[in-house]
Amino acid sequence: MSVIRVRGLVKRFNGLAAVDGVDLDVEERECFGLLGPNGAGKTSLIRVITAVSPATAGSAWVDGKDVAARPRETKALIGVVPQLDNLDPDLSVIQNLVTFARYFDIGRKEALARAEENLGLVQLLEKRNARVDTLSGGMKRRLLIARALMNQPKVLVLDEPTVGLDPQAKHLVWQKLRSLKEAGVTQLLCTQNMDEAAHLCDRIAIMHRGRVIAGGTPAALVAEHGGRRVIEARPRTEGREALAAELRGRGLEFQEVEDTFYIFQTDDTGLEEGFLGQMERFSYHSPTLEDVFLRLTGRSLGE
C-alpha cells in the first residue's frame, strides 16, 4: 500500500491553478523526490498533502487516511521540514523539541528522551541549551529535521531542505537524510536541486506548471528522456541562426538557454568537430536529470 496517495489533485489560488491535476504514489520506505523550478507547484502540493491547505479538487491519503476528512490524524503521522526556518526563537534548542512534542500530546519524559536521541542524530547535542538565533543556517536546518522526527513520523516531508546551505552543511544534511531512509523513514522531498534528487531519491516526479510531466527512477528518467549524449555549445552571437538552422536540418533536438545551446543526441547523428570548432565554446556531457528537465520543459531548473 502507498504511504502517500494523491489522485486528481487540483489547487487553485484565485482561479490560477498552482497544482493542476496531479496523481502520485509514494511507497513505504522510499525517498520520493518532487523536482521542479520555483512556481512548479511543489510547495502547494505538499501543503495539501500535509493537511494545512484544502484542495480545490481531488484527494490525498496518508497511510490510508483521507487528508481532508481527518486532518489531525494525518498531521500526527507526518513530520514536516519547512523551507523557511520556523523554529521558536523564544525557546532554547531542547525546549523547541519538547514544546513541539507537546503539540502531539507526547509526555514530557518521553519527549526529553526523544529530544536527546534526535539531537544526537543531527549532531547538535552540545547545543541543547543554546538559543535558536545563535545557530548557523546548517544547524537550524538540522534542528528542523530533529524537530520533524519528534512524533516518530511515518512520513517525513521536506521542502528544499538544503537551499541556501554551503556545500559542507548540505552534505551533512544529505547524510542525515540517507541514514533516516536506512532506518525506514519514508520521505517526500521537494527540491529544485537535481544533485540533491540524484543523491537521495529512489524515484522522482518532475513537476512543471502544476503538472507531473515525467516520473521514474533517476536512472530510468535519464535513460528515457536524456538521450545518449548532450552537446553544450555557445555560438558567437552572429552564428546563432546558422547553428539553429544546422540543427533543424539534421533533425537534432535542442534547447536554447540564454546564450547556450543544449543539443540532445539520441543516435549517431551529431555535429562535426570542425563545425563545433567555430563555436565560442563547446563541450560534451552525459545526460543528467537537469538535461531531462531542460529537454521536457525548455527551461533550466534554477529558473
Binding site: T50, V52, P71, R72, E73, K75, A76, I78, V80, P82, L84, D85, N86, L87, D88, P89, D90, F100, Y103, F104, D105, N151
Partner: peptide
C-alpha cells in the same frame, strides 16, 4: 515574523 503559527499548524493543532 517568527512563523510560530505555521510551525504549530503542521502538528495536530489547527
Amino acid at each position: 515574523h517568527q512563523k510560530t503559527f505555521d510551525a504549530i499548524i503542521a502538528t495536530p493543532l489547527n
